[in-house]
Design a protein around this nucleic acid. Sequence first.
DNA 1: GTAAGTAATTACCATTTAGTAACCAGTTAC
DNA 2: GTAACTGGTTACTAAATGGTAATTACTTAC
Lengths: 126, 126
Amino acid sequence: MATVGSSCLGCPMDPVLKAVTGRWTTTILWNLSTESPLRFGELMGLMPAISAKVLTDRLRMLEQNGIVLRTQKSTIPPEVSYELTTHGQDLHQALRSLHEVALKWNAEGWVPGQGFPEDQVARAAE
Amino acid sequence: MATVGSSCLGCPMDPVLKAVTGRWTTTILWNLSTESPLRFGELMGLMPAISAKVLTDRLRMLEQNGIVLRTQKSTIPPEVSYELTTHGQDLHQALRSLHEVALKWNAEGWVPGQGFPEDQVARAAE
DNA sequence: GTAAGTAATTACCATTTAGTAACCAGTTAC
DNA sequence: GTAACTGGTTACTAAATGGTAATTACTTAC
């Protein structure tokens, strides 16, 4: 084969995508990116639909990957807070870009599962 | 509560994340972002581990969301190609940022599930 | 002595998701 | 007449994922 091009056969996108995208993961990173540090309970409050189990799972995974730093004060009751590591902060730009897209699409009337207004018009005309 | 801050209670990140992140979705978008249009079989070739079923599902979902454009030539055998819509191209910047992070982390010796070299040293010392 | 507060962990079950393999259409090449 | 090509779809099965609720631990407040 001559051209692999710039696509992802052998480029390191896949493991990174696995670590930072996926259900809740990116939302957690976005929260930690805009406000830091955040305590476990505060993260729960920002994402009312997440369960403690899944939040714990994701935070552990992100910690294992060196993306999130967990800091525990062994007080009673315990206080645990989370923030992006230096490496994790490399994601700032990507997260901000994603946020901009979200704002833009929202302003343009994008509806999840339906697309943009012109798509909906096109479908109605069929 | 006084401060919702800039976090995602009521900001439009969540539906966008649902549409563009998730297993294979971001990889597909990245491929279409770097090379376009791509035929169904070409996409399969770029992602050897994906199954036709999942690729079809993701492309349909992205099409429904107005992010990907499907073009079919009714020749025999049929030729179907995919590319980002104008709206889909809004993701270029975010995808490029993500790609940069991937390259950087790779260069820094990041290992999925293990983190960065300094994390691994820290764990070994425990 | 019992509840509240905090950050989990665990077990169990339900749901979702993904993989596999077979099949379809229509024409060309063998 | 049979296989190959292309881009799928469908049915069935298997695996991963997520939710719920109970439990842990330790101290303070009632």
